[in-house]
């Protein structure tokens, strides 16, 4: 059974003071559990697309259906709420809040969403145990590690902690914005493999955006933003 979790139709987006559209996507649909690679050069509107899917920005026209709900019609606070409940985010760099410990950073995603907190508790009994379980899968499973300040971590460790945070409470969507571009090539593949494996386990859909086509083979489906986006400038 294939369930449609993301459906974009006739989407157009332009910045308020811009003359032309930055994005124009007539149709894009993603099924539950799919791992989608979206390739795009920097400046092609990747991050903007992710902001639209995350409900931070609203498209100028068109529809974005997430889990069957048109998020463009939700109020600002409902969209924030929706994002907290259903989306885990991984940035390119500096994913962690510097003044919080590893554990506090990971459980933060459950602090803004009771749905995810409940899911995490159902999974492991306590938020700390769930954080530890995820870290263990990501090969950082040392209880001592939880109390560490995040500034002591290597970039690779930071990205794995960020992944654990995104996976906390098994959100339906994991959105990753160039999460590997700051990693060394040997760490990169391992990280990617772990990410995909964890998304499988959590039955989460993964939207992975990168300019690096080298990573493409790891995904079952690959799209190019350039061919997707009809608003490409001359």
């Amino acid at each position: 059974m294939t369930e449609n979790v993301l459906q974009i139709s006739d989407l157009r987006f332009r910045w308020p003071n811009s003359q032309r559209d930055l994005l124009a996507i007539s149709s894009l649909s993603v099924n539950r559990g799919e791992k989608v690679f979206i390739k795009g050069a920097s400046g092609s509107g990747k991050t903007t697309l992710l902001s639209l899917v995350g409900g931070v920005h609203v498209p100028t026209a068109g529809e974005i259906r997430l889990l069957g709900k048109d998020i463009t019609r939700l109020s600002l606070s409902r969209r924030d709420h929706f994002r907290a409940d259903h989306i885990g985010y991984i940035f390119q760099l500096f994913n962690l809040i510097p003044y919080l410990s590893v554990l506090d950073n990971i459980v933060l995603s459950c602090r803004f969403s009771t749905t995810r907190a409940e899911k995490a508790l159902r999974q492991s009994g306590s938020l700390e145990e769930e954080a530890l379980r995820l870290l263990d899968h990501l090969e950082l499973g040392d209880r001592q590690f939880l109390r560490q300040p995040v500034v002591n971590l290597s970039v690779g460790q930071q990205q794995r902690v960020a992944t654990a945070r995104a996976l906390m409470g098994s959100p339906e969507f994991i959105i990753a914005d160039e999460p590997t571009s700051a990693l060394d090539s040997d760490v990169r593949e391992k990280f990617l493999a772990l990410l995909i494996q964890e998304c499988e386990l959590a039955d989460s859909t993964l939207l992975f955006v990168s300019h690096d086509s080298y990573l493409e083979p790891a995904f079952e489906r690959s799209l190019s933003l350039q061919s997707l986006n009809e608003a490409v400038s001359a």
Binding site: V56, L76, D80, F91, I97, S109, F112
Partner: peptide, 12 residues
């Protein structure tokens, strides 16, 4: 830090 909090569903 604010962008991270926003991504986690923290409201403006």
């Amino acid at each position: 830090e604010i962008a991270i909090l926003r991504s986690l569903g923290c409201r403006p």
